[in-house]
Write a protein that binds this DNA or RNA. Sequence first.
RNA 1: GGCCCAUUCGUCUAUCGGUUAGGACGCAAGAUUCUCAUUCUUGAAAGAGGAGUUCGAUUCUCCUAUGGGCUACCA
Length: 463
Amino acid sequence: MHIGNLRTALYAYLFARKNGGQFILRIEDTDRERLVEDAVKAIYATLKLAGLRHDEGPDVGGRCAPYTQSERKPLYAKYAKELVSSSHAYYCFCTKERLDTLIDETGNRRYDKHCLHLSKAEVQEKLAAGVPWVIRQNVPQEGATTFFDMVYGDVSIENKELHDNVLLKSDGMPTYNFANVVDDHLMEITHVFRGMEYLSSTPNYNMLYEAFGWEIPRYVHLPHIMKDKQHKLSKRHGDANFEDFIAKGFLPEAILNYVALLGWNPKTEAEKFSLQELVEAFDVSGISKSSAVFDEVKLRWLNAQYLKELSPQQLHALASPYYSAIATPVNLNLLSELLRPRISALSDIPDAAKFIDSFEGYSLELFEHAGSKSSAQLARETLPAVIAALESLAGWSNDALFGALEQLAAQRDLKKKQLLWIVRIAVTGHLSTPGGASEMCALLGKEQALERMRQSLSRLRSA
RNA sequence: GGCCCAUUCGUCUAUCGGUUAGGACGCAAGAUUCUCAUUCUUGAAAGAGGAGUUCGAUUCUCCUAUGGGCUACCA
């Protein structure tokens, strides 16, 4: 499910929960040629992962079952024929070839109501002869239609701009243009949240509701989420969808939180909202009219906030799968703790932990550091004492290590910084590491830390 | 092409005629820190353009420009 769809679902969910309504999942699979294998499974998976539980739907049932349009097929013909009898719709037998002759100089086609003028007898005759047919909406060409949208306000469109849309296709399936109206009525949908691409065709739908004498739902058209100023976020162009972000190590709560704020403002300066808080804060009046560019950098920041608030156990559980490539035995629980403020997505972990396995052959110039006034020379002189002191250290915790190193620095009349720099480089061989000298020693464990120090020392001596 | 919608820092946004145009991300600088990161402080950064209406327009109206959408037997 792509991010735009997820946000639409989220808003509908928030609105339903906030107002004591029902959140209903309906599968619109009337285009038999564009069916995508497992697409429905992906929808279930995303909704579940996102925590958007639906009250009714194909998988959970409900009073309006079935919730999959292809299973409701017989229904639509009945309603379409009803419209034919009331002359709000008509049979059309035009061939693709004839339709193509209607294309104008701008490359567009508008149906000329040719079949509207067929006599009843002619229609019966063609029907009986098995000529393929569709049912088209009969849209009046005079006047204008105005409707109210909860985001965009009053929108007015001249009826002559409207088309005689196909309602029922030749395979007997309804088009979206028809099925959405019939099903929204039958399922007692009160509020329609959908992308703003439907703004221009909404008058068509309202005419249908009126033809049936049905109540028109409230409309909440949503601005698009963009990849950049001119391109929509779209699955077709390989833009990330919800599951991709999960795979990239983003937390569902963070994605939902970020997406909720894309095009909606909670009228607070708060940035972090749990799903429940979103429910409480949600209000259609905060939805903006203009499209919003999706900013993964800000998503990363938000995700980092969520990561920081996880308990050590939770974070470690989420991080563990990313540790499989680490060959050196280290204290992984401690690693999780050290990485916590240093990653903004779980997928940052492999890179952040890469230093662990790449120790051999580092440049001895790393010991030269002006900031802490340390040098290779000093390292060569000091390391034996460090090794000796740490060999006899009772505990091997970060605190014990730090205390011992601090003490040693004082004894040898060294700045704390100097000694710590030397030890950290001696034990990791990296300019920057996710933790200081004592933490790196704790991470590696006594045996390994001391072994690395000896190795570093011998390289320093033979250099 | 026609129609519909939109337009505040780079990005997400606040402002519902009178503000030093606020916040967040990012960026820059500084402080803290056993490197890095975190955290904290500070800074740079915006009303598309032009007409009106008004004592006063980011805010209301119109025009232009730009961007998006629709114009399918796709949704």
